[in-house]
Nucleic acid binder design. Structure first.
Lengths: 128, 128
DNA sequence: GATACCGGTATCCTTTGGGATAGTAATATC
DNA sequence: GATATTACTATCCCAAAGGATACCGGTATC
């Protein structure tokens, strides 16, 4: 039994090399995409530019303070561009940069997983 | 100019329907995968079962308290199974459930994006 | 006898994330 | 004249996330 455990804990291919790079990659990604709102927000903009209030409605219950903060951070990291049109009243459009479109595969996988996960949860509730 | 803006903010295909489902999916996913450590942790286990200390080393600077908490949450959500072997000293193995392997596409996309993102940041630093 | 490893706990603390509520100027609408 | 809308900001507040440090029993190692 002891040898079996030793093999498990010593022979996995991830010991020092490839796994570390992968973990680092994921942590780098999360560093700019962390929190409750950034990924949903970017996703909401994938289908086109939107105004502040439109984004707020898309996301449901986000308060303006939080939305404002998130948008500023996304602007800093070059995921979003803010454009002001001097209409009356003023119109502000937020849209994704070309760079943030590189997130599309991530967002799609995450979205699909989330939808399937919710279905699984609902199904397991029913069966109880 | 006003009409152009109106078109932008009213004609995007995401107004009330498909976009909302996507946002909800992403939020459902983040609900169980939130925080700094869960995704890196799951990724670290994708290449095989590991012991507590091995995971700690894989993740770098995580403190035992945090790691313990994260593992418990992942166990509750059925991403991870904990097995104790009564060797001396005791051996504890953590491994992914079959379900959590459904996260593989998400993790791979996120990892690739993170690696590419770091390269982009490094490159832009150099060019300044 | 001192030190180190394992798998954690216990305690304390700081930071942040995020929410509630209210308010702003300028205009449009009823 | 009252109310609504847009795009926010200001203030206050709370809970959770996460980190630092120390410690535990048991064993092995030097």
């Amino acid at each position: 039994m002891e040898t079996a455990i030793k093999e498990i804990s010593e022979n996995h291919p991830c010991a020092e090399n490839a796994c570390a790079a992968g973990v680092a990659g994921i942590r780098d990604a999360l560093y700019v995409l962390n929190g409750k709102w950034k990924l949903p927000l970017i996703f909401a903009l994938t289908e086109g530019p939107k105004r502040f209030k439109d984004i707020q409605r898309s996301l449901g219950e986000i308060t303006p303070k939080i939305l404002s903060k998130e948008l500023k951070e996304l602007e800093l990291n070059e995921f979003v561009v803010r454009t002001v049109y001097s209409t009356t009243p003023v119109t502000v459009i937020y849209e994704l940069t070309p760079y943030s479109k590189s997130l599309k595969p991530v967002l799609n996988e995450l979205k699909d997983w989330g939808i399937q996960h919710r279905q699984r949860i609902v199904a397991s509730r029913k069966s109880i």
